[in-house]
């Protein structure tokens, strides 16, 4: 897109939206949010960047191929379910640990890992579709 304002603002807007998507992802365990909606926000950010600066820039910025990101997400989600083997509880049971980092208690869980997997699957799959549509838009 040719608008100078849009092209100038897009990188900032994109980084803000990606940051917000991660906030929504992490908040999602107990409050509205989560991997799916967070992933959609991140894809919108990438789409804005792609419309403003071109698909090639987005592909370079995310480094990995979108489908590889989706694969990593699916893998993470599966692993999150399989961790419960070690604890002798059924598949996909939520397990928590509370390590303290710099005096701050950080709750980590397999549920979070699963949600991150969902986030990556959504980011990978939808951005793969969005980027190829944008590429073939014809300019």
């Amino acid at each position: 897109m040719k608008s100078v304002i849009f092209r100038a603002v897009a990188p900032f807007l994109t980084s803000l939206m990606v940051l917000f998507s991660i906030f929504v992802l992490l908040r999602g365990h107990n409050e509205p949010g989560g991997g799916f909606i967070g992933g959609l926000i991140a894809v919108s950010a990438l789409a804005i960047y792609g419309i403003a600066c071109g698909v090639e820039m987005v592909r370079r910025a995310i480094y990995f191929h979108p489908m590889a990101i989706a694969g990593a997400g699916l893998f993470a989600a599966t692993v999150a379910g399989l961790i419960s083997i070690a604890a002798r509880v059924p598949f996909m049971t939520g397990l928590w640990i509370y390590p303290s980092v710099l005096g701050l208690e950080v709750p980590l869980s397999t549920v979070t890992l699963f949600d991150c997997g969902v986030y990556l699957v959504v980011v990978g799959a939808i951005s793969s579709i969005a980027l190829s549509l944008e590429e073939r838009g014809g300019e």
């Binding site: 191929h65 590889a68 694969g71 699916l74 893998f75 599966t78 692993v79 598949f91």
Partner: peptide
């Protein structure tokens, strides 16, 4: 542990499928 065999076929296929998607090149 033997009861895990119930879910393992699905989890195994999903994990390997995901791995292959990651190794797409």
């Amino acid at each position: 542990s033997a009861d895990w065999l119930v879910i393992l076929p699905v989890a195994w296929c999903l994990a390997i499928g995901a791995l292959l998607v990651m190794l797409r090149r």
